[in-house]
Amino acid sequence: MSKELIISKIRNGIVIDHIPAGRALVILKILRLTGTEGRIALVMNVDSGKLGRKDIIKIEGKNLSQDELNMIAIIAPTATVNIVSEYEVKQKFKVELPTKIRNIIKCKNPKCITNKAREPVVPSFTVIKENPATLKCDYCGTYNSLRDVESQLVMKQ
């Protein structure tokens, strides 16, 4: 009998593969998945040729928006996304951090103008490092590290 963990295929939805080990739960949180939405398979710390160990998430009936892809790219820069339709992988791509990130996170600097209430200002960041992600605020110049961003994305939910 095989000692591998068997997870059945999904019919329509997405598979997020090559997530750095231990980060899958964070990704579920930022995708606002609580476990009540439908079939979700989550494997953590499985062997990976590329990463040593990795996490995988399969989500039935889910599409990813560009903002969600950007958030995944920040948290899991090595991730690949498979789009599944009728049990077949129709599209497969590696997440990519754009050079600019707008709106999805806030600057950690409390003295940054983007954190002032009642101002029509949209937070904007330049990606200066991809893995681990470091985002430089376009307004105040402060570095926002993966840790700053991660806690914020998780708390936001």
């Binding site: 003295k111 940054c112 103008i113 002032k116 307004y139 105040c140 402060t142």
Partner: peptide
């Protein structure tokens, strides 16, 4: 009043604006 509205007013009254603010990025905004 917020900063944006104050700046809009100054913008319509003057040819050039000089600003100092305690928040970082305020001048860019």
């Amino acid at each position: 009043e917020n900063l944006a509205d104050t700046v809009r007013m100054l913008d319509s009254y003057s040819n050039i604006i000089v600003i100092r603010h305690e928040l970082e990025g305020a001048a860019k905004f």
